[in-house]
């Protein structure tokens, strides 16, 4: 029974060893400041089998991202409301309850070769450093990936966080050679984004992957890459930072 002091949360549960393997369970918990506190309360006092990941409690480790009523949040930064439905992130294998296989954070960054490949210089101006500050705030929580509608139709899409990281290195004034990154984000990468902005909406770090992808498209055009979806080998010289050349269609 909901009261002023308690609230009821429903958790979408999954366990591969149980039949049926999915189940919605409701728990009544004392009102807490964060969803993570509520989940921890359930595990410690009501149901030790409830499984979720947690880490820093301060929104920097990216462990505790889940979906609440269909929207991605960090459990440690969301205040739960009466009747909330808690589900695991999408587009990653659910291992148990709210825990998903997070190894795609590794494999996608590997695919994009998202790393420094050597420096041409050590110095960097404050403005140049600013250009990659927000992008390097990423905590790899995967909220953007779960919110991305492209993944629903193309599971090979690199997705928002990997592409933001590509831009983080390509836009870094110190980098000597980012060609391997640019090359590896052409297929199932920058041209597959629909620029819907769902990733930007859910990012707990206020990163704007949609804009980063637009920047990558602009840069790719300058470098002579073309959007395969337009066909005919059309090249872009529309200019860096003004990638306003329409939304690719699927």
């Amino acid at each position: 029974m909901p009261s002023n002091e308690t609230l009821t949360l429903t958790v979408q549960r999954f366990h591969p060893q149980r039949q049926p393997n999915t189940l919605s369970m409701s728990y009544t918990v004392p009102k807490t400041k964060t969803l993570l506190q509520a989940l921890t309360h359930i595990k410690r006092t009501q149901d030790p089998t409830l499984t979720f990941n947690a880490g820093c409690n301060a929104s920097v480790c990216g462990s505790c991202a889940v979906r609440v009523n269909g929207r991605e949040v960090l459990a440690c930064a969301y205040t739960p409301q009466e009747g909330d439905l808690i589900e695991p992130l999408r587009y990653a294998t659910v291992l148990k309850d709210l825990v998903v296989d997070a190894s795609h954070t590794t494999t996608l960054n590997a695919r994009a070769h998202n790393a420094s490949h050597g420096h041409k210089e050590e110095m960097q101006s404050i403005d140049a450093a600013h250009a990659i500050t927000r992008q390097s705030d990423c905590i790899l929580c995967s909220a953007c990936y779960s919110a991305c509608p492209v993944l629903a139709v193309n599971s090979d899409f690199l997705g928002p966080f990997a592409l933001t990281r590509s831009w983080r290195y390509i836009a870094d004034s110190r980098e000597a050679d980012t060609s391997s990154i640019m090359q590896s984000i052409q297929t199932n990468g920058i041209w597959d984004c629909t620029l819907c902005g769902e990733c930007t909406t859910v990012c707990p770090q206020h990163i704007d992957p949609k804009n980063d992808i637009m920047m990558l498209q602009g840069k790719a055009g300058i470098l002579g890459y073309t959007n395969p979806k337009f066909g005919g080998g059309m090249s872009f010289d529309g200019g860096f930072g003004t990638p306003d050349f329409g939304v690719p269609s699927f």
Binding site: A115, S116, H119, E122, M123, I126, S136, R168
Partner: peptide, 18 residues
């Protein structure tokens, strides 16, 4: 610090670009 810089560590910068 040099080593971290060579790996791409995005340090905050001062006005001399250091």
């Amino acid at each position: 610090i040099n080593w971290l810089g060579s790996l791409g560590m995005p340090f905050s910068r001062d006005t001399q670009e250091g």
